[in-house]
């Protein structure tokens, strides 16, 4: 029956609209951590009052914090001291290239929009590809990525948010990055040789590096 199909589609649509921002936030008096007899219980904000207005998500606070930040729905301050530098790095790191799960793309940008370099480097991660023995076992124990993910950032039930790139594609990207790095290094050492040659032979006015010697 076509009208029955239409009705069921309509019912699904209604249900999805109703649940889109309904959230699953608990009243403070029932959340198990606030004292329901305390004097602040009526004064403190109920999470749903604030969080239901932010871009929704399915896990954690049920808020997509990155989207909220980038869309300007929230404007959290980057520092108390106005002179403090707000450091950002736009560099993706690809990890776990040969595992049974898709590879991990770690976006520095999304992380440095919230965090400072010193929050992870060097006590949690050495800033060198391959130097960190990252393991899900440690992450599930609250180490490495698990210092935040599973405690305050999106939880460890969201596998595919990190394991998001097919292995072959990640391998191709990393090979390209490494090739570019090698070329750059070779270029730099060529330059160094040239400079050394120029140094022993004395500066030549016709050398393309002559001006850079000064």
């Amino acid at each position: 029956m076509p009208h029955r199909k239409f009705l069921s589609a309509f019912a699904i649509l209604c249900a999805s609209i109703a649940t889109a921002h309904s959230g699953n936030w608990t009243k403070l008096s029932e959340d198990g951590v606030h004292d329901p007899r305390g004097p602040a219980i009526e004064l403190l904000q109920y999470p749903g009052d604030a969080l239901s207005n932010l871009p929704s998500d399915t896990a954690g606070n049920e808020v997509d914090w990155i989207r909220a930040l980038r869309a300007g729905v929230i404007q959290p301050r980057p520092s108390i001291d106005p002179d403090r530098e707000d450091r950002r790095l736009d560099k993706d790191i690809y990890l776990d290239l040969y595992g049974s799960m898709p590879s991990v793309r770690f976006p520095h940008l999304a992380h440095t929009e919230w965090l400072d370099c010193s929050n992870c480097h060097d006590h949690l991660f050495l800033p060198k590809r391959g130097a960190n023995n990252i393991s899900m076992f440690l992450i599930l124990q609250g180490q490495q990525c698990g210092v935040c993910h599973g405690a305050v950032a999106f939880p460890l039930t969201e596998c595919s948010r990190c394991h998001s790139v097919p292995n072959h594609e990640a391998q191709r990207i990393v090979a390209a990055i490494e090739a570019a790095e090698k070329e750059k290094q070779a270029g730099a050492s060529d330059g160094a040789v040239k400079r050394r040659d120029a140094g022993t032979a004395g500066p030549r006015k016709d050398s393309p590096n002559a001006g850079k010697q000064q």
Partner: peptide, 26 residues
Amino acid sequence: VFPHWFHRIRFRCKVCHAELGFKMRA
């Protein structure tokens, strides 16, 4: 009771965890 959700609407993580020196371990 410290609600992270309330504070991160107003401040980025780096404010408390880098500038003010709160270690990231309850």
